[in-house]
Computed example of a mutant assay.
Amino acid sequence: MTLPYRQIGEATCGGIVCVSDHASNQVPEGIDLRIDPALVNEHIGVDIGVEGIAEEMAANHGVPAHLATVSRLVVDLHREEEHPGVVPQTSDGHVIHGNVGADVEERLSSIYRPYHEAMSKWLDERAPSLIISLHSFTPKLATSDEPRPWEVALLYNEDDRAARHAIQLFVEEGLNVGDNEPYSGKQLNATMNRHAEPFGRPYCAIEIRQDLISTTEDQNHWAALLAKVSTRVALTLD
């Protein structure tokens, strides 16, 4: 089995880094989710657009990245190990038949733990000034009639130092900015709760609406914007 993560870009100690738990739609050989294969390309299978943004930031903006290489439908790397949805049996109205009765411990040991152990080592070596935890969200859930108006959002739990600065900077860009929307970081912040908050590492957990980052041109635009905003946030936190 290939590694459940890949690391791109050259990092310098004390710089800005990016992590993305839902960057991939890949299902490892030997795992049958027993769903329509097209679903792994939709928002339930991957955070649409984030891989391209992270690759552009690493290549042209000096922001290296630690990226998942396994779909969130196989194991959700942005959940705690004990979370009931760490191997999701349903997602936005779809039953993930191959996960019903699946060997959760095997997926944790082969995918989830190696991913997070590698991230922990990577962050320890780089001692970043700021972590960007990059996600994207669908404009509207299939199970809801409520559209999501935010173009970009910042999530946080206890440590909101970086988020507060980023929210203001995105507002100054003329964007509709969500403050702990469409999800609250008080309930959903697993990766940063594990790798940032206990160590006092500042972070921006950023969600971008998927219809805004569906093309390479859009992804490159957002990569430049995220690099600009995160650089200003990091300078403010110095």
Rank of each mutant, 00 (worst) to 15 (best):
residue 106 E to C: 01
residue 236 T to Q: 09
residue 88 P to S: 12
residue 208 I to P: 05
residue 128 P to W: 03
residue 205 A to W: 06
residue 92 D to M: 08
residue 26 Q to V: 13
residue 3 L to T: 12
residue 126 R to Y: 04
residue 93 G to N: 07
residue 221 H to Y: 15
residue 91 S to P: 13
residue 184 S to A: 03
residue 51 E to H: 00
residue 141 L to F: 14
residue 29 E to F: 02
residue 56 E to P: 01
residue 81 E to I: 10
residue 11 A to K: 02
residue 9 G to M: 05
residue 106 E to H: 09
residue 176 N to F: 09
residue 148 R to N: 10
residue 20 S to F: 02
residue 212 L to N: 13
residue 101 G to C: 13
residue 213 I to D: 06
residue 99 N to L: 04
residue 205 A to M: 14
residue 120 S to C: 13
residue 217 E to D: 15
residue 86 V to R: 01
residue 49 G to E: 00
residue 207 E to M: 09
residue 223 A to K: 05
residue 114 P to W: 10
residue 32 D to K: 04
residue 181 E to G: 03
residue 99 N to I: 05
residue 145 D to V: 12
residue 8 I to W: 01
residue 102 A to M: 01
residue 122 W to N: 10
residue 57 M to E: 02
residue 213 I to K: 05
residue 207 E to K: 04
residue 231 T to P: 02
residue 157 N to R: 14
residue 187 Q to H: 12
residue 226 L to Y: 02
residue 44 I to R: 07
residue 19 V to K: 00
residue 220 N to K: 15
residue 105 E to G: 05
residue 49 G to A: 05
residue 50 V to N: 06
residue 18 C to D: 03
residue 221 H to P: 03
residue 161 R to M: 10
residue 86 V to A: 07
residue 49 G to I: 00
residue 29 E to N: 04
residue 85 G to S: 10
residue 220 N to C: 15
residue 234 A to L: 04
residue 82 E to F: 09
residue 15 G to Y: 05
residue 153 A to S: 14
residue 219 Q to R: 11
residue 207 E to Y: 08
residue 167 I to T: 02
residue 181 E to H: 04
residue 13 C to L: 12
residue 238 D to V: 12
residue 214 S to P: 00
residue 74 V to Q: 11
residue 198 P to Q: 07
residue 205 A to T: 15
residue 41 N to L: 04
residue 200 G to L: 11
residue 7 Q to I: 15
residue 65 A to Y: 02
residue 54 A to S: 03
residue 138 T to K: 02
